Simulated scan of single mutants.
Amino acid sequence: MEVLFIALIIGLIPAFIARSKGRSFLPWYIYGVALFIVALVHSLVISKSAAKIKYDFEEQGYSECPFCKEYVKPGATVCPHCQRDIK
């Protein structure tokens, strides 16, 4: 019974790490309870989701280049990726 309780508690660790990277909490919690060591390593090495990356850039004031769709610093007049003028 104690092992189950410990598994339910430590399963939160990979779930919170994955959630901070924009992943769903519940599937990662179940994964963490079932296979803690594997889930922990996996949650540490996964990259942020595309939606989380976009949200982070927009929070910092970056905008998307209309030509190459890369993120550009606020106030930039030329895209550093495609070298085209930005309005």
Rank of each mutant, 00 (worst) to 15 (best):
P66M: 15
K52L: 13
Q60N: 15
I6V: 12
G61I: 05
I13H: 01
L40G: 05
D85L: 11
I30H: 06
L26Y: 00
C65I: 08
R84C: 05
P27V: 04
C82L: 09
K54N: 06
I46V: 13
I46W: 02
D56Q: 15
I53S: 09
I17W: 01
A76H: 03
F5K: 14
C68P: 01
M1R: 13
I86T: 12
T77H: 03
L40V: 07
E2M: 12
D85G: 01
L44S: 00
F36W: 14
F25D: 13
R23M: 08
L40K: 02
S43C: 02
A39M: 09
I30E: 14
P14Y: 00
E59L: 14
C82K: 01
I17A: 05
R23H: 12
E58S: 00
I17S: 03
F5R: 11
L26H: 03
E59S: 11
F57M: 14
G22W: 01
E70V: 01
E70I: 01
I30V: 04
G75T: 02
K87P: 10
E70G: 02
I46F: 02
C82S: 02
C79Q: 08
G11N: 05
A7Q: 08
A34D: 06
E2T: 00
S24A: 15
V72I: 11
F36E: 04
R84M: 12
G11I: 03
R84D: 10
I13Y: 03
K54R: 10
Y31S: 14
M1E: 12
C79D: 08
Y29S: 09
I6T: 04
K48I: 08
I9R: 02
I9S: 03
Y29W: 10
Y55F: 15
M1C: 09
F5D: 07
F67G: 06
Y71V: 07
F16E: 12
I53C: 07
V72C: 05
V33Q: 09
I30Q: 05
I17L: 05
A76I: 00
F16T: 09
I46K: 03
A76P: 04
L12G: 06
D85C: 00
G61D: 10
C68F: 11
Q60V: 01
C79P: 04
